[in-house]
Design a protein around this nucleic acid. Structure first.
Lengths: 363, 363
DNA sequence: CTGAAAGCGCTTACAG
DNA sequence: CTGAAAGCGCTTACAG
């Protein structure tokens, strides 16, 4: 009933009649060992049911063969998928993955990083909750801990990043609507963090000077794509069609969407800028019993990947989410392996998946 | 540019002018230390930016403050949520979480358990991919590693489990359809693993002797609930209405659903036994342009949690998924803390969420 | 309350 | 190719 004591390399060495150093070399795949001895040690290990204690190994080698992940919220299809990509790569390379959630909260992020550091991860993959660069992340990098950012990139952090071309994808999505003849295209976006003054200022500024999207939050990048498409098509932007949920919440999105769709100048098409906004929009459409694409054309950013199963199937922007994770992991592992070069910002393309939710504007 | 060397407790002790033992006691919160010394040590630690090395601590204490999770597939809303529940509890108790995926593959599961054991997790939460009890899991338990099963329970494993009352929930769901007057209710279920001979045998046996659901796979448990509801309502079971996708695949489900809905004796209602089956069913309904609930009433098991956003909103069985994870983690932590009692199988209730997808049978 | 010593289970130079 | 010794960074008895 009492748990049998764990077998250590000392016992294996004794059983095989060699030193622990030799046993370690034979088992750990480092250093030399004659075939004869190696076989004897392995037999002893098998016989005793030896399992190496990685904690001890890590303590001496200084590497834990573990990567840490700070996700914003694993209970979200986007991060779940990213994590799958990370996990697949980690597994294939013999690495473990320690997972933490920040909930977009800076204190939680700090705690999470702290935990991961104490557990001596070899590197970490993080969704920084503040793109304006948090000091603790700079310290991390300065401390020599490899890190790869995901989904967003803090502008002054000398670390790799893997993101999606949000701006380009939104531009394409909105262009698709404008090309179908729509002149009043709404957008529902999170736009929580204020990057550059008010929303109106942002729009005004985008109109006169080309903004760079690199260091913005995804929802602002997508708004920029929306503005790009309008400029490209020569369709004037109407600020009352730009709706800001102000939070990553489908309830907030639903509220904004209902308000938008009941407003005097109802748009003939709407672009929802992420999966959660899309949920809210679809709820609003159901609330108001609006037919799609009859009365309203719709394109959704589909982080959540359920747009294909809706009726009608929604034209949506599909991110290569698994790839974000696997690429981040590959990058991180190459940094851990010592590959050194300038930090690189990798931008993946998102694909527009054309379905049945876009038609010509009504009458 | 070179990463600054890590600060160890030895350096903190030197800085504070005490022994490492005292420094450890002052910092680690174990043993005694006078207020004066404690303050001096803490000041030194802060000054040097000391971060404890948990690897070293774990090596000596024998506890890693880490729990391992073997999920079937994190890229699935069910496990993502479970993991959230686990992560929330772990965080609040200062534990780390190492995540692995088994993909319902026994070899992967073994590898995963092996990895977790080498990393010396204090316990693990697992979705056993073979409910017939795998030897490696028995060894694990025998080795004294606390483990909690999730979603299913291997029948001969002396370990806690947290599952959902699949049978009861399916029974309620199907009863809801039968009560609405449906006499031909179809079911689309995974039913991959054969638990007791053929499907027909299983159904026949259930009719004569009361089967116990405890050690069955979830999809078989749900089928049992389907049969229960029919027996309760005195409605005869028609085997051609019981469709088996044979795999956890929405494509397979879609195929079976199309076949079922195009068959001579088309059912007037269908129960989809899990989120993936539900996807397949909804696709089939779209393929065939069947109106819901006009021509067909539908109840779905909603692992994926997107039924509420569909049009029309689908009546669905909603599992307390987050709770599964948090409960499993709490249970595991109490075992790790040394609480010893008989393994307990905890069964959570699922809730039927009534929406618009059920009406009376046509004509 | 504090310190010197031993030790957790490994790996790493260093001799041989 | 192998072994004796030292050491990774901590904690744990054991004296004092």
């Amino acid at each position: 009933m009492a748990p049998p004591p764990r077998i250590t390399i000392t016992q294996v060495a004794a059983e095989a009649g060699v030193s622990t150093a030799t046993a370690g070399r034979a088992l750990g795949g480092y250093g030399y060992a004659s075939d004869e001895v190696a076989a004897r040690v392995q037999a002893a290990a098998r016989k005793l049911g030896y399992k190496p204690n990685m904690l001890a190994r890590s303590l001496v080698t200084g590497r834990s063969q573990t990567i840490g992940v700070v996700a914003a919220d694993i209970d979200n299809a986007f991060y779940a998928r990213v994590l799958r990509g990370i996990g697949d790569v980690a597994r294939s390379r013999g690495f473990g993955v320690i997972l933490t959630n920040s909930d977009e909260n800076l204190d939680r992020e700090k705690e999470a990083v702290q935990l991961l550091l104490e557990k001596r991860v070899d590197g970490l993959i993080i969704t920084p909750c503040d793109v304006h660069g948090s000091e603790h992340l700079r310290n991390l990098i300065a401390g020599g801990c490899p890190a790869v950012q995901i989904d967003r990139a803090a502008y002054d952090l000398a670390a790799d990043s893997v993101t999606v071309d949000n701006r380009g994808a939104a531009r394409e999505a909105v262009a698709h609507l404008l090309t179908a003849g729509h002149k009043r295209v709404g957008i529902i976006a999170e736009l929580e963090q204020i990057d550059s003054g008010s929303l109106a200022d942002f729009v005004a500024q985008a109109a006169v000077s080309p903004l760079t999207a690199e260091t913005l939050y995804p929802s602002w990048q997508r708004l920029l794509g929306y503005l790009d498409a309008h400029r490209d098509a020569g369709v004037p932007v109407q600020t009352q069609l730009i709706r800001r949920a102000g939070a990553y919440s489908s309830a907030a999105a639903r509220h904004e969407a209902v308000d938008l769709l009941e407003s005097g100048a109802r748009p003939t098409a709407v672009f929802a800028a992420d999966g959660t906004m899309s949920q809210g929009l679809m709820q609003a459409i159901a609330d108001l019993k609006i037919s799609v694409p009859g009365q309203l054309s719709v394109v959704c950013f589909d982080d959540l990947d359920w747009m294909t199963f809706m009726q009608p199937a929604i034209t949506s922007v599909h991110q290569p989410v698994h790839r974000i994770g696997s690429m981040a992991a590959e990058l991180l592992l190459s940094r851990i392996a010592g590959e050194t070069s300038m930090p690189k910002h990798n931008v993946l393309e998102a694909r527009l998946n054309i379905r049945d939710s876009v038609g010509p504007p009504p009458h």
